[in-house]
Every structure is written in C-alpha cells, then in structure tokens.
Amino acid sequence: MCLGIPAQVLECGEYYARCRSRNGELLVDLSLVGQQAIGTWLMTFLDAAREVISAERAVAINAALAALDAAQSGATDFTAFFADLDREPQLPDFLRTEPS
C-alpha cells in the first residue's frame, strides 16, 4: 500500500525540493508539480510530489496518519485526531430531501 504524506518545502531547486514531513526531511521530485515556493505543502508518494495542497489539508491528513499509527498501537479512542467525531454526521445539502 502506498500512502500519501504531506511535506512542506524548505528549499527548492528546478527539479527537486528539500522538504520536511512527519517522517523527517526528504528530497522530493517536482516533475509533476514544478518549482514551488518555500513553505508550500505537497502531497508526496514515494518521494515524488503529486499535488500542491493547502496547509489545512496537510494538518487533516497528518491527523489521519497519526490516527493510523495509534490504531496500530492498539488505541480505540480517536477523538483527539478528528475534531468532528463527537458530533452527529450531517448530510450535504444536495442529499437532503425537502419535507412534503
């Protein structure tokens, strides 16, 4: 299985960027996204950037990955990783039916 890992650009060259991720620093191939500004968040797979993502999305993905780590360690309470787990799920507007 291949998981995407968010990584933030620390230094950028034409083809590669030095980035920081939850697993430390890595050299990321920029072939698919081009040069990026320092501070940009990238979704990386196998040390290659596949997509530019927002900081908010990077935080959410890192929380989900931390939850996976916790699950592998035997945790059963995941509310610390997902702020919206303690609320009732809501249907999106387009799926709600109008009362007759």
Rank of each mutant, 00 (worst) to 15 (best):
A63V: 05
P6N: 10
T44V: 13
C19L: 02
L46I: 05
Q8G: 03
W41K: 05
T79L: 03
D93E: 14
M1H: 09
D47R: 08
P92T: 03
A60R: 13
D69N: 11
D84E: 05
E25L: 00
V9F: 07
L46S: 01
G24M: 05
L68M: 13
G34M: 11
C2H: 15
E88A: 15
Y16M: 06
G13T: 10
G34Y: 09
T44Y: 01
E88Q: 13
L3I: 14
I61P: 06
I38Q: 10
V9T: 11
A7W: 02
E25P: 00
A58K: 05
L32W: 04
R22L: 14
R18P: 06
F94I: 11
R22C: 07
G24I: 07
E51N: 06
R87T: 15
A67Q: 07
C19E: 06
V52N: 01
F45Q: 02
A60L: 14
I38L: 08
A63P: 11
A63T: 14
I5M: 08
L32H: 10
F45C: 13
G24D: 02
V59S: 05
D69I: 13
T44G: 00
A58Y: 07
C12T: 15
G13W: 02
V52A: 09
S21P: 01
T44H: 01
D69R: 15
C2G: 06
L26S: 10
L10W: 05
I53L: 04
M43E: 10
S73H: 08
A63C: 15
V33H: 06
V28L: 00
A60K: 14
L91G: 08
A80G: 14
Q36G: 04
A66M: 14
P99F: 07
N23V: 07
L32E: 11
L95D: 06
C12W: 03
S54T: 15
L91S: 09
A67M: 15
L46D: 04
S73G: 08
D84L: 03
L65D: 15
F78W: 05
M43T: 12
L95G: 02
S54Q: 00
S54L: 01
F82Y: 01
L26K: 05
A37R: 10
D93Y: 04
Q36T: 02
V33W: 01
S31A: 08
L32S: 12
M1A: 14
F78Q: 13
E88M: 15
L3T: 09
A70I: 12
R96V: 05
E14P: 03
I5P: 07
F94C: 03
R50Y: 04
L85T: 12
M43Y: 03
L27H: 01
R18T: 14
L68W: 09
Q72M: 10
L3N: 12
A49F: 03
F78R: 04
V33Q: 02
A80L: 09
D47T: 00
L10C: 01
L32Y: 13
V9L: 08
D93P: 04
T76W: 07
S31R: 14
L46A: 09
Q36A: 11
A49R: 00
E51V: 09
E98Q: 13
L95Q: 07
G13P: 08
D47F: 09
D86V: 12
N62M: 00
A37G: 08
A48D: 00
